[in-house]
């Protein structure tokens, strides 16, 4: 007898609707938007590839914002790009989450004194999890995603009000 049958002898279990759909479903299928600007993009890409295998968290890259739950802002955000990021964020359906990956997206990083770099993506869109590093290791990014899953677990309402 397998584990599941042992836990659920009658194949029935009871839960709240929002627990099942919102929490359990969402946290295990965070489809992220393939959105990367700079150096962190390569680490994001390698996290999704052979060795680190992002797929095991249920995270699949999507090319369009309309199918994504999560935006990983990987890299420097310039003023020219910031307007685009705002628009892409607006095109994502609720519920939506943002991970800011790397020092540049967190606060400007090494380019904080540059004339063309926005000092932190949180100036234009709300950020749920910040992952430090320049660039962060794949392990750090994965921990950031796990932190986001914990956050989703603790969300009080079924549907978040539009922010």
């Amino acid at each position: 007898m397998g584990l599941l049958e042992h836990k659920l002898p009658e194949n029935v279990f009871f839960t709240k609707l929002d627990q099942l759909t919102m929490r359990w479903g969402l946290r295990n299928s965070l489809w992220y938007m393939l959105f990367a600007t700079a150096c962190c993009a390569i680490e994001l890409m390698q996290t999704g590839m052979s060795r680190y295998d992002f797929d095991r968290f249920g995270m699949i890259p999507r090319a369009t914002p309309r199918q994504s739950d999560l935006m990983i802002v990987a890299g420097t955000v310039t003023y020219k790009m910031a307007l685009r990021i705002k628009r892409l964020y607006g095109q994502m359906p609720e519920p939506k989450y943002v991970i800011s990956m790397g020092s540049c997206a967190n606060c400007g990083g090494g380019f904080v004194h540059s004339y063309s770099v926005l000092n932190g993506v949180d100036k234009i869109i709300p950020v749920d999890v910040y992952v430090p590093g320049c660039p962060p290791r794949p392990e750090a990014l994965m921990e950031g995603c796990m932190k986001l899953m914990e956050k989703i677990d603790q969300e009080p309402r079924l549907v978040r009000s539009a922010r």
Binding site: G75, T78, K80, F111, S114, S116
Partner: peptide, 9 residues
């Protein structure tokens, strides 16, 4: 879209 002004820095 990724002009970071490295030359000025």
């Amino acid at each position: 879209y990724l002009h970071r002004g490295i030359e000025k820095i």
